[in-house]
């Protein structure tokens, strides 16, 4: 354990931790655009610079190890000047279309410009302009908005390990692209959207089926209903409709989702969902009331039990349903109907 001083507070932390981690541990929030605990520190955005007494220059807190006796200031005048200058530089190369930008309300650049009072950039030079890459079915890449924090590239190469995207060109021309700039559809992208979730600005956005603003939605944390990994996710809900899904850091998924969990949620609100019970009458399924449906089932159960015994009734429960529902179905079969004929598709 080492002890350092951050903004006048003594902090004790495990050796090898960064200044950023030390600050976080006592609730000192250092702004950052590129930091992600899952990644090897890469120190790209430089927003998290802090002042360390005795150091030659400002240091990036996300990638500088804390050391014993270090005295750190996270919001000193020189730090604020540098942060404002860096934000100024970012904004100089970023469209000011927050009014219509889909990321508005959840854009870290927007938040930081607000926090540090950057209304507009003081530079008026060249701005980058790229065609949107909309070739992927589920998300688009708008390099015009990219601030090159690099999170998407590193999430793709270090977390998702797909290596679909990379940096292309150098200097001011640097942008995130696919090999030979052939576009996402022709890349090795598996549409997991984990880069999209990492993007702090509006450069990588899910393709929306309907418009919404982030401040209009409710978020509900739940567990993905596809495979058995049990990824944690948030359903974004507007007007009783799931309009987007986002990954949440959970034990098993480490903040990741796959294409199914992330983008294949249309079934929830699909028009072909069953809305009423149906009973086959004269060979045709007809909508009926719940009462009638229950009656038909209950009568059949009683009938079969009487004629062939309870073991002539079988139930298939579902690996898709809740634990509680599986329990209740076994109870229905075993306690109420009286048979152990209950199974599910565990083997398929």
């Amino acid at each position: 354990m080492i002890t350092l001083n951050i903004n006048g507070f003594e902090v004790e932390i495990k050796e090898g931790s960064t200044i950023y981690q030390a600050a976080s541990s006592i609730g000192v929030k250092i702004p950052t655009l590129c930091h992600d605990e899952r990644l090897k520190p890469h120190g790209s955005c430089r927003i998290c610079v802090v002042e360390v007494e005795g150091a030659r220059s400002l240091v990036a807190s996300c990638s500088t190890p804390a050391s014993n006796g270090m005295v750190v200031h996270t919001e000193s005048e020189s730090v604020i000047t540098a942060r404002r200058e860096i934000l100024d530089l970012m904004l100089a190369n970023h469209p000011l279309d927050c009014l219509t930008c889909e990321k508005a309300g959840r854009c870290t650049l927007q938040d930081l410009c607000y926090q540090y009072d950057i209304e507009e950039s003081s530079f008026d030079g060249k701005k980058k302009k790229y065609e949107k890459d909309t070739s992927n079915e589920f998300y688009y890449a708008d390099q015009t908005k990219c601030i090159l924090c690099g999170k998407c590239v590193y999430v793709c190469s270090q977390v998702q390990n797909t290596d679909a995207i990379c940096f292309v060109d150098r200097g001011f021309e640097t942008h995130v692209g696919t090999p030979f700039d052939l576009g996402l559809a022709k890349s090795t992208c598996v549409s997991c959207g984990n880069c999209v979730a990492a993007c702090p600005v509006g450069a990588l956005m899910p393709k929306r089926k309907e418009k919404f603003r982030y401040w209009e939605i409710d978020k509900v944390k739940t567990t993905c209903s596809y495979c058995g990994v049990g990824c944690q996710m948030e359903l974004l809900v507007k007007d009783n409709k799931v309009v987007e899904v986002e990954p949440v850091k959970g034990h098993s998924n480490d903040g990741m989702l796959c294409v199914k969990g992330r983008f294949s949620y249309d079934f929830i609100n699909h028009s072909s969902r069953l809305k009423k019970p149906m009973v086959r009458k004269n060979g045709v399924l007809e909508e009926v009331s719940w009462d009638e449906a229950y009656d038909v089932i209950a009568n059949k159960i009683t009938e079969v039990k009487e004629s062939d015994g309870a073991d002539a009734i079988t139930g298939f429960s579902s690996a898709r349903a809740l634990t509680e529902e599986n329990y209740l179905m076994t109870k229905l079969m075993r306690a109420v109907i009286g048979t152990n004929n209950i199974d599910h598709c565990a083997r398929l």
């Binding site: 993905c224 429960s317 579902s318 690996a319 634990t323 599986n326 076994t330 209950i342």
Partner: peptide
Amino acid sequence: GQNNVQGACDMGAL
């Protein structure tokens, strides 16, 4: 393979 195949087995859906 399935989101709750473990839960279904745990619950005795066997």
